[in-house]
């Protein structure tokens, strides 16, 4: 029961972030909403490992956290280089 409520709330957050991803007027807004997505997805992976009671899934969450950080930095560098020069 609790897991259903929690997944519902997480889904609500995901939905709002997705709406921002679609309507976001600039590239920066989309990247920000993607960054939010990443943290939410880490939470979802942890919740899944909780539901299925497999601690193996936590490793995936760790790797995802590292990759999400790299992704954010790469997008930030891209924004700076692409739009900052003119």
């Amino acid at each position: 029961m609790i897991t259903i409520i929690v997944f519902g709330l997480i889904g609500l957050g995901l939905l709002f972030a997705l709406m921002r991803l679609i309507i976001g007027p600039t590239v920066a807004d989309r990247v920000v909403s993607l960054d939010t997505f990443n943290v939410i997805v880490i939470g979802i992976i942890v919740m899944l490992s909780f539901v299925f009671e497999r601690s193996l899934y936590l490793d995936i969450a760790i790797i995802y956290a590292i990759l999400a950080f790299l992704e954010t930095i790469v997008f930030a560098r891209y924004l700076e280089g692409h739009y900052g020069n003119h």
Partner: peptide
């Protein structure tokens, strides 16, 4: 867990409602 879900929902709502980047 429910507090966590609540803050996720609020974060999503915040990113949707706030006026600038």
């Amino acid at each position: 867990l429910i507090i966590g879900g609540l803050f996720y929902a609020l974060g999503g709502l915040g990113i949707f409602r706030m006026p600038d980047t």
